Computed example of a mutant assay.
Amino acid sequence: MARGVNFLIKVNTANSDTPSYEAVAAQRSGTFNRGYDTIDMTSKDNSGWQDSDYGNGNWSISGSGVLEEEDPALDALDAAFLAAETVMVQFEFASGKKYEGEAVITDFSIEAPHDDVATYSLELTGKGKYEEIEASAS
């Protein structure tokens, strides 16, 4: 049985020529979303039933956690967000399998309540298709 604690969001903290993926520190949640837009193919020939087909695919990664100010992955996200640049990200399974792709940071929030720990939340929207990377045999 897979446990959520073993799934990680990772960010490339180096460059595209020699990537180095670091897990975002102190994660509490992570979600890998995948979907398709639909194309309405309905016509009078469908006897009153809607007919749909696959349109464009989409994916995103969202997550949240405790804010660690000295985290290389959060620093890379912050720099990319401020420069309006894309980031290379991975969603890693407990087995080592990964989904990897280029993403736009569409939300990067920091919450700092007076009576609790500071936290972050982020939304990364895929730019193009993601790649599936199988777990390496060790």
Rank of each mutant, 00 (worst) to 15 (best):
A94C: 07
A94Y: 02
Q50A: 09
D78S: 15
N12Q: 13
T13D: 05
L122M: 08
K10G: 02
F108R: 06
V104A: 15
V87E: 11
F7H: 14
D53F: 05
D53V: 09
A14K: 03
S136R: 09
T86Y: 14
I110Q: 03
L124E: 10
Y21A: 05
A137C: 10
G126F: 02
T119F: 15
L122Q: 08
M88K: 07
S64K: 05
Q50D: 15
T38M: 14
Y21F: 15
E70A: 06
F32T: 00
Y130P: 10
E85I: 02
T42N: 02
S136I: 10
H114I: 01
G55E: 09
E69W: 11
L74A: 12
Y120E: 07
A83C: 13
E100S: 13
D116S: 08
M88E: 09
D51W: 08
Q27N: 03
K129E: 15
S52L: 02
S29R: 04
V11N: 07
G48A: 08
E68H: 02
I61G: 03
T125I: 06
P113I: 13
V87I: 10
K44E: 01
A83I: 07
T125K: 11
A76R: 07
S43Q: 00
K129G: 09
E102H: 04
G96R: 07
F81I: 11
D116A: 11
S95A: 10
L67V: 01
P19G: 05
K97H: 04
N12R: 11
R28N: 03
Y21M: 14
W59E: 00
E111F: 04
A137Y: 14
I133E: 04
G57E: 14
E100K: 08
V24D: 05
E131V: 01
A14Y: 12
A2M: 12
K129C: 08
A79P: 08
Q50W: 09
M88A: 15
T31M: 09
V89Q: 15
S62I: 01
E100I: 03
D17M: 06
A79N: 08
D107K: 14
S62P: 06
L82E: 15
L82R: 15
V11H: 09
G48Y: 02
T106A: 05
V5C: 14
E131G: 04
G126Q: 01
H114C: 08
F81M: 13
